[in-house]
Design a protein around this nucleic acid. Sequence first.
DNA 1: TTTTTACTATAACTATGTTAGTTTGATCTC
DNA 2: GAGATCAAACTAACATAGTTATAGTAAAAA
Lengths: 114, 114
Amino acid sequence: MKAVGELEHLVLLALLRLGDSAYGVSIRQEIEHRTGRDVPTGALYTVLGRLEEKGLVCGRAAEVGPDRGGRRRKYYTLEPSGERALAHSHTILRKMAAGLEKKIEALALAAEQP
Amino acid sequence: MKAVGELEHLVLLALLRLGDSAYGVSIRQEIEHRTGRDVPTGALYTVLGRLEEKGLVCGRAAEVGPDRGGRRRKYYTLEPSGERALAHSHTILRKMAAGLEKKIEALALAAEQP
DNA sequence: TTTTTACTATAACTATGTTAGTTTGATCTC
DNA sequence: GAGATCAAACTAACATAGTTATAGTAAAAA
């Protein structure tokens, strides 16, 4: 099985987290608020489109628009193949980092210092 | 700070693990044995080259050749900026996956079933 | 009817990953 | 000492993933 890219990985995690309420804006916020990683909106929609093409996620337009103004949301959910891809990539990284957690945490702390 | 790619991430983790003894072949084996992810040798050398260009790792040719036959090894070590990049990418992923470990493990187990 | 709000979309580009080889330099066998 | 063969690094061309800058859609508010 193929491993997904870095941003794809984050988006799949966001979908797992958000469940029913995952659409462009909420996905973006979830990633940015939780990790601080900037996700340009264009980047997000292109990866969502590619994940959909690959059959890893499924997107459907909402019945009604947002509370005030605005285009219809498009909600995304994980497909079984998306769950597998996520689990696969996650597992590879976990295995490779196993036992290094302390070291990596020390590096992260060191990087914060002036 | 920029996040590194998926294979770059794995290579940086391998360097942290292997310390002094990291060169093309040992890096490849470390990743494959530990995770099962296939790393074509060509792919590995191109990412090592690119990580070196970016200043995240430092490569030096070994003084002597291998035990029997063969071209000189080129040993790689992490530069401070490489340690920071690794810690950064690792932390983003960790934050995004925090609290989902059980769910992801369940998905991984489900994927193994027939 | 113009502006503002809330959202999705995309083309063109840059960066990362892969494939299918080639090259280098040593040692072994004859 | 002329291949064979081993251990390793390298490369060009291609494929996939990520980013930028910008545009489009649809509704409510002014």
